[in-house]
Computed example of a mutant assay.
Amino acid sequence: MEKLKEQICKIFDISQEEASIFLAEFKKKEVKKNEIFIAEGEICHVVGLIEQGLMVCVYNKDGEEIIDEFGFENGFITNYYSFLTQTPSLKEIRALEDSMIHIISRQSLEVLGSQHPFIERMSRIMNEKLFLRAHERIKSLLLESAQERYEKLIAQRQDLARRIPQYMIASYLHVKPETISRIRKKMSNTTLLT
């Protein structure tokens, strides 16, 4: 939990005491590999903070999974659209690995926000970060090649290729798995030449 506290302090520029107040309301939960955290069709009433493990957000279209996002250690995980609008989730969030998550309910978060003004600031910062991340993802899909998107993803998370199956990375990047194979081969040939 100390690592999470440090991360919260860093992301939101808050004190250790404020981070402790915020994290005290979270409840620890183990989520086993392939277990669903938020089901498609369910209204999302919780926000998770991943201490350990890996999560995936998936849309299902005509029996095909379309990867929207991955959730890693020290990061938040939720269906924020469903959480804000209180409408049924159009995607599923499940564990790709055995995971340890700290969860806070919408109600607890609202009570906390009414008691501590710094929570409102945290909420604003989170909204800004989510907007910027969504903007970068859309821009990347529109303007960058498959190889540029793959290289950027791997640069951000070096452990991805080891932890996530190739077909999921391909889905996330909106390319075919064979495209990822070609990119990896091209990259390894370039590495061998240098």
Rank of each mutant, 00 (worst) to 15 (best):
Q7T: 07
M126D: 06
K185E: 03
E64S: 04
L141W: 10
F131A: 05
M100W: 09
R106L: 14
I93P: 01
G41W: 11
R121F: 04
R133T: 11
R94Q: 08
L132E: 02
S181I: 04
K185I: 02
T190F: 14
A24E: 14
A95G: 01
S15T: 14
E151L: 15
E35W: 04
D98N: 15
I8C: 02
I67V: 09
T191G: 04
S15Q: 01
Q115K: 13
A19H: 05
K27R: 15
M100Q: 12
L192N: 05
S140F: 01
Q107Y: 13
K32W: 08
K3P: 08
V47D: 00
Q52S: 14
I104D: 07
R184M: 09
K3G: 13
M126N: 08
I8M: 12
E18C: 01
N127Y: 06
S108P: 04
M100C: 12
E2R: 10
K61T: 12
L4E: 13
M126E: 06
F131Q: 07
K5W: 02
V46P: 04
E6R: 12
S181C: 00
Q16S: 07
K61F: 12
L143S: 14
G71T: 04
A155H: 13
K10E: 15
E51P: 00
I77C: 15
S171K: 06
R182G: 01
T78I: 10
E73T: 00
Q107H: 13
Y81M: 12
I14C: 00
F76E: 07
V56K: 03
V111H: 10
S140R: 02
R149F: 03
L4C: 15
K5E: 14
L109A: 00
F26V: 03
R182T: 01
A95S: 03
A39C: 03
T85R: 11
E120M: 12
M126S: 08
K152A: 15
I93N: 00
K129E: 09
I21W: 12
T194Y: 12
F72L: 11
F22L: 15
L130R: 11
K186A: 09
L153G: 07
C44T: 09
I36F: 08
V31T: 09
K10H: 15
Q16E: 13
K3F: 11
L193I: 05
I67F: 00
F22A: 11
V47M: 13
C9Y: 05
M100K: 10
N127K: 11
C44N: 12
M187F: 08
Q156D: 04
D68M: 11
K5A: 12
I66D: 00
K28P: 03
L112G: 02
I14R: 01
A39M: 03
T194S: 12
R163H: 06
L192G: 01
Y80N: 10
Y59K: 14
N79Q: 05
M168I: 08
R149L: 06
F22K: 08
I38Y: 07
Q86K: 10
N127I: 07
Q156H: 03
G63C: 11
V111Q: 08
Y59D: 04
I43A: 05
L132D: 01
M187G: 00
L90K: 05
K27N: 15
M122N: 00
F22Q: 05
I38N: 10
V111L: 11
D13G: 10
L130Q: 12
I14F: 00
L142D: 14
